[in-house]
Nucleic acid binder design. Sequence first.
DNA 1: TGCGATTTGTCCGTATGTATT
DNA 2: TAATACATACGGACAAATCGC
Lengths: 225, 225
Amino acid sequence: MDVAENILKPVEDRTLRAQITRQILDMVTSGNYFPGEKLTENALAEQLQVSRAPLREALRELVDRGVLVSQPYKGLRVRPVSGTDLKELYSLRTELEQFAFRLAWNKRSEDAVADLESRYDRLIAAQPTGDQARTISKELSFHSWVYELSGHSLLLSHWHRLTPLVQIYMVLHFRAHGSHGQFRHMTTEYLQLAKGEDLDLMLSHIAEHMQQGLLAVLKSLDRGD
Amino acid sequence: MDVAENILKPVEDRTLRAQITRQILDMVTSGNYFPGEKLTENALAEQLQVSRAPLREALRELVDRGVLVSQPYKGLRVRPVSGTDLKELYSLRTELEQFAFRLAWNKRSEDAVADLESRYDRLIAAQPTGDQARTISKELSFHSWVYELSGHSLLLSHWHRLTPLVQIYMVLHFRAHGSHGQFRHMTTEYLQLAKGEDLDLMLSHIAEHMQQGLLAVLKSLDRGD
DNA sequence: TGCGATTTGTCCGTATGTATT
DNA sequence: TAATACATACGGACAAATCGC
């Protein structure tokens, strides 16, 4: 099953370049490669059975998305993780998601709320299966709801730009803890507040929600990798 | 290495791909190409005297940055402008810049303030020359100050992602009005508030500042292109 | 320090798929 | 329907930079 399929826009992969981008992104976000690991073009080209031309274009895309880092003439690496990067990621997520909620607040129709509940159900259902990739995918789908509802396509694109890094960090966290059912009550509160009528409460909960996630993943970083 | 340093004074473009990216970006943001205009690879390759391999990689970078839009097997175009896109751009700018000010507020040293004043002086000095590209560059440098001071590299990268589109819109505005010395008092107030001690006043001014800029460019859109 | 091996970066020729006329 | 133009893809080759011995 395609991990990123439910997160990224359902762009039909018409070109080989797009397929390659998707494949490498999946490999990285599903933990096949470790942060900081070096990628060599020839190895990838042989592994994926493609020529270097479309491969290099795909790699360039992933560098621009922040998934890979490039050093001219030295090579490509999976973006290394650091506590600083992690803090920045979560603080920016907090700002963007609060902004999204302010935009989407008056757009919450019955259908929209039902949609969020459906995403919540799928997330809860995925957790006990132990399928990490699936759970992370559902978690991101749950959080994507407000960005999509906001109707702010530029904001949505900036959120999509963050998701691969969020995935990478979640994989690290899973690796250290095995599951994050511990956050189930946070997610449930998030859902209830999103259905409620107190926007300020929702906004402050987002900040708390993010802070909890940040601390958890920071602990994973300190212990493991 | 200092991130901000690489932006203001871009390190030597070691690879041809980086040089091509910069050249096309300059052509687009300086108004050589119109929004919506089609770009053909062969023409660009001949014009820039490069082969298609690094050219295509550079084009892929610009697509990811949002400067160009790609339709598989149909071609590339300079991103068309629309009122909706413009509103989204300015609303997101408002959020990001307010966030940056909250982060940077307690980091405003004497040197930092002097830096901002220096950027202000260069902006004011550039306006009467009529050099559009230079004026726009100084305007962006002025606004970049707070992002750099914030120390939030991820936020800075998202701001840099917005700047090409901001440039494109500014070019349209210039084309319709010839100059925007009309905003000089806004910029002056921005500087004074940034030097002051009332953060809330600064934040609300940013919202107003952006709103003014949005309305001005929207008018340009309605009249001209 | 130098030298060879490896990898990235670049170029070219050609073939194929797609859209447009 | 055919023809043309163009984007896409491939493989081979060489140059440039880096790395390891």
